[in-house]
Each structure stands twice: as C-alpha cells, then as structure tokens.
Design a protein around this nucleic acid. Structure first.
Lengths: 197, 197
DNA sequence: CGAGTTATGGAGCGTCCCCTCAATAATTCG
DNA sequence: CGAATTATTGAGGGGACGCTCCATAACTCG
C-alpha cells in the first residue's frame, strides 16, 4: 500500500552516527544530518521522529554493537588477563575501533548525562554490564592462575573501568601520541603490579 | 576621563563561570550570561570581547586557581602519599571543591579540545604541570619511605592522572553515589597494591 | 562649565536552529 | 483503473543565536 522508501535505513543511521560522533549531539544540526545522509528533512523526520529520537536510536544501536565487540575482543584472547588489559588500555587497536573522537557513549555521557535522562540510563546500563564482564574475566584469569587470587574481582573491575575511561579522556583531551602511549604503558604497569601473584 | 563601570569585574566572571560550568560552553547563550551577570549585552561585549574570549579568560583563571588549589591540597598533607591519593580519588572533599558537574577544564577539554585550539593548549599545559607535580610528590613519598622506591615516579604519575580522570568521568556519567564510592575505593586499592613496598 | 571618553541600555541585524505544512510522486490494494 | 496510504520534496515559520549600531548617561579632565 505505501510508497516504498528510497533509502537504506541502516546506511542513513551510519552516516548520521558519524556526524554525531564527530561533532557531538549539540553541534550537529539537522541540516548536517540531511547533508550527511542525503535525505530531505521530511523524510528524516518521518522515519526517525526528531533529532533527539534519532540520536537515542543511534546511541542504542551503538551500545549494543560496542558492548558485543568489547566482549568478543576480550573473550577471544587465549589469555583472559591479556584480553582484558589490552581492552582497558585500548592496545587492541584492530578490534576496538576507537576513533580520534573517542567512544560515542562516553562522549555523550560526559556531555549530556546530567541533562538527558535517556543518555544517563544507557550510560549506567553499559557501566553495569561492563563491570560484570570485567569481573567475570578477572575471575577467570584468577582460575587460570594468571593473577593473584586474593583480589576481589568486582572491585578490581571497577578500578579497571576507571583506568579505561581515564585513558580515553587523555586521548580526547588532546595530549600527544607519544605522551598517550606513555600513559597507556604506565596504566598497564600500575595494573600489572597490583594484581601480580 | 571615562565613565566608571558599575559592575565588579570579578563578580561578573564568577557568575559567568558558574553558567559555563553548569551548562557547558555551547549550551550557555550570551543571554544566559547577561541574565546571570546582570550586565547588558553591550557592557559585556565592551568589557570582555565576545563569548569565546570571555570563556577563555574564565578558563584561564580557573586553571590557575585550580592548579594552585590542587598543589596546596596535596602538599599540605603531612603524608605526601596520602595527600596525593586523596586528591586522585577526590576524597579530600573540602579542599577540591569538585561540583556535581565535574572539573570545568576537564569538561571543556573533553567537549572542545578537538575543535578549539586554545582549549586544547590549556588542557595540555595543565596536564604537564599536574604530571610534574604528581611525580615530585611520588618521589617525596619514596624518600619518606611511604611507597616502593623501585617504581618510576613519572610513569606512576601518568597512571594516577588516568585514574583521577577516570573517576571524574564516572562521577559525571551519572552512576549512583554508592557505586562511585565503591569505584573510588577500588581505584585506591589498585594504586596502593601497586606501590606497596 | 564644556569637551572628551567610556559605560550603558534598547532595538534590531542577519543567520541558523528545529521543525512543519502544503503539494506531489510512488506504490499496493480493491 | 481508482482509492488509499505513505515517501519525498521544497518552501518557510517561529524563535533563539551571537553580535552590533546608536543614542544616551556618567564620569574626568582642561
């Protein structure tokens, strides 16, 4: 009955996400979105509601994908502990495609969490899931004898998340490549010394 | 010769800073600033140039004050190591008046560093200064026998900065008070275990 | 007191913001 | 084929944005 759409919804979402990712939610105008996607305004509004709805939709998709990717990257490593630490320090460059602009969710959370309930909800949920994932991985590393069995997996997971986000912040804050590399190595050393048997 | 100003420049800067701090640079309109400061637009432009100039001016003042406060808080502690770690985990609540909105510079850096050269410059500079401050403090803690003398002060300082920023991110991202407290404790434990003699 | 200089206040400029309202095109059903 | 339904298109509305112009007020100097 209806006229079929001329555009590929997924492609549109990808193009829109790239803009939100690069410029942030506030700095991305609806015109930017229509430019990037090729859609007319009305098509965009008809298909996705409004700017905020579209953003949340994109953020949701992003969260699902990113968490899946993180879990896959971490658990794929033959060494549970190495898989975890390389994720925390973003050394696993191929898997976690972290662009210069950082993680979309982290950016959004830092900028909007205090004002946007929906963003905060997503942020907290991913935090919980990551916490559980890290804790599981740490427990596994303990079982396989890679790290000290005396530490608390969940608490250590919390610390690792903090380190992870700290590194990402340094990345975004514009310090040089070399300095960032040093910071990553330093963080890794801090962690390793802390959990050493 | 000229007509004297009716307003107190410092008070105006403080009021404007509060707005930038609460809502961020982009979300703060010039009208918000005139409302908050009580100045007319022309007075504001006459005294401070434009919105961006005013922001940079405020950011500069903030950086100077905040760094001075950080240094004072850290070095004032009779125990060099405790002074450092309490700053890193923001446990020294009275001294470092970190509002719910987080550090103004960190917020600005995360949001604007990629687009605003002047912000990035400030961000990098404070990073360097903090790095040096932390490294000095770590060396002192080593001398006073509080921590392992085998660790590298500068590298450890880098790791501590990452942890510090990570905790602040968690703070801003909207996780609950209890969870944040757990994360702080976890980070502290991670650090302590790592530098233990 | 008058000349010169700056601060103030209000009106408003051009631009961009998000979003909507027609009108038209394309498709599936009876 | 005609009716119904939806997608697309272009135009533009109402408002907020950063910023400026201009007249006026308030002060210090000669």
């Amino acid at each position: 009955m209806p006229r079929p759409r001329k555009f590929d919804e997924q492609a549109v979402l990808t193009a829109a996400r790239a803009r939100f990712w690069r410029d942030g939610y506030a700095a991305t105008s609806v015109q930017d979105l229509t430019d990037a996607t090729g859609l007319g305004t009305q098509s965009l509004y008809g298909a996705f509601g409004n700017k905020h709805d579209l953003f949340i939709r994109i953020l949701d998709d992003y969260c699902t994908n990113q968490y899946a990717g993180l879990e896959a990257a971490i658990t794929a490593d033959p060494s549970p502990w190495h898989g975890l630490t390389s994720a925390v320090t973003f050394e696993d460059d191929g898997r976690l495609d972290l662009p210069p602009q950082g993680c979309l969710l982290a950016n959004s959370a830092a900028a909007l969490s205090t004002q946007d309930e929906q963003v905060r909800t997503r942020s907290c949920q991913i935090y919980s899931e990551t916490l559980a994932l890290f804790a599981r991985q740490i427990a596994q590393a303990q079982q396989s004898g890679e790290i000290d069995t005396g530490i608390d997996p969940e608490q250590t997971a919390r610390a690792l998340i903090a380190v992870m986000q700290g590194i990402e912040f340094l990345h975004k804050s514009g310090i040089g490549e070399d300095e960032l590399h040093l910071a990553k190595a330093a963080a890794l050393q801090l962690i390793e010394r802390s959990v050493a048997r």
